[in-house]
Nucleic acid binder design. Structure first.
Lengths: 155, 155
DNA sequence: ATATAATAGATGACACGTCATTTAATTGTC
DNA sequence: GACAATTAAATGACGTGTCATCTATTATAT
């Protein structure tokens, strides 16, 4: 190779590879309860932020920027979520987990914790902290960083 | 928050966020030459591995697992790549960059180097090395790791 | 009060990614 | 040589993600 930006290039592809591999891992586990990683993120966010609008949800999600209309479409069809028009301002749609959505949440927690446990088997807590600080630097001053902060992942 | 797997969970979302943000950055830059990040990866791989088959390409790509038939479809339509049936075994399709594809490659190099420079403005080389070692650990023993090795990104 | 601007969400269009299945070609076995 | 097994690629189906545009509703400006 012998390239000028060897490590930077490798970092680029490793980020992609880690994201793909992690997503696959999670996807295979979530498949058993019939939901996707994106849907699981929506359910988690709604569980912790009840009655928010579609737009607010968009601000909180990492998996998607902009308004997640279609992601919600599918989840409404699968009876995980209810869409409720705001009575005061009918431009807004408020989102609510259905009973089914609530039930999925506990399964999601278990599955996610399994994945987190795997991470902790590979990495020490200090390693994770340092890496998080480093990764956070790359997205500072972006909407994604704000989303993480609002979700409670501040540094 | 006060969760058991706080750092692990944060790591999960940071990986996703960094991948999204980086992809967007690259996407916006590549837009000017009319190609996508995935297409740029294909062009780079083909430049460095002439005349490989679709399947071999699949093994080398990080952006996609399995055979990238459709990704190549679009690139053939845009006259970036030629599909050539192998004369000895016509199950194989060999891929070749067109003149246009070759031309794009130099623009891609410039754009990628710009991104890598940005990374080096944020991170020291030691930080990148350590982070790469750490990220690599997560995908060890996967096909993605093999792909990176074959691409020349071994540790 | 009405015309205009701003806003939330829906939708069309496109490019991925992934999985399962199908098709076409070749290899191996008898 | 005929036929089953294997292999490479294509394809159908689905769920994202992203961007631009459209629609409906509310706020504002005069």
């Amino acid at each position: 190779m012998n390239k000028r930006f060897k490590e930077a290039e490798k970092f680029r592809y490793l980020i992609l590879a880690v994201q793909r591999h992690g997503n696959k891992l999670l996807k295979d586990l979530l498949k058993e309860i019939g939901i996707t990683p994106s849907q699981s993120e929506v359910i988690s966010v709604l569980k912790n932020n009840e009655n928010i609008t579609l737009k607010q949800l968009g601000y909180l999600l990492i998996c998607e920027e902009g308004s997640p209309s279609r992601l919600i479409d599918r989840m409404v069809k699968e009876q995980l979520i209810e869409r409720i028009k705001d009575s005061a301002d009918s431009r807004f749609v408020r989102l609510k987990l259905t009973k089914l959505g609530q039930e999925k949440y506990s399964s999601i927690l278990e599955i996610e914790n399994g994945v987190y446990q795997q991470l902790e088997n590979i990495y020490t807590n200090t390693e994770l902290q340092k890496t998080n600080e480093l990764l956070d630097r790359f997205i500072s001053d972006t909407s994604l960083s704000e989303a993480l902060n609002k979700r409670g992942f501040s540094c």
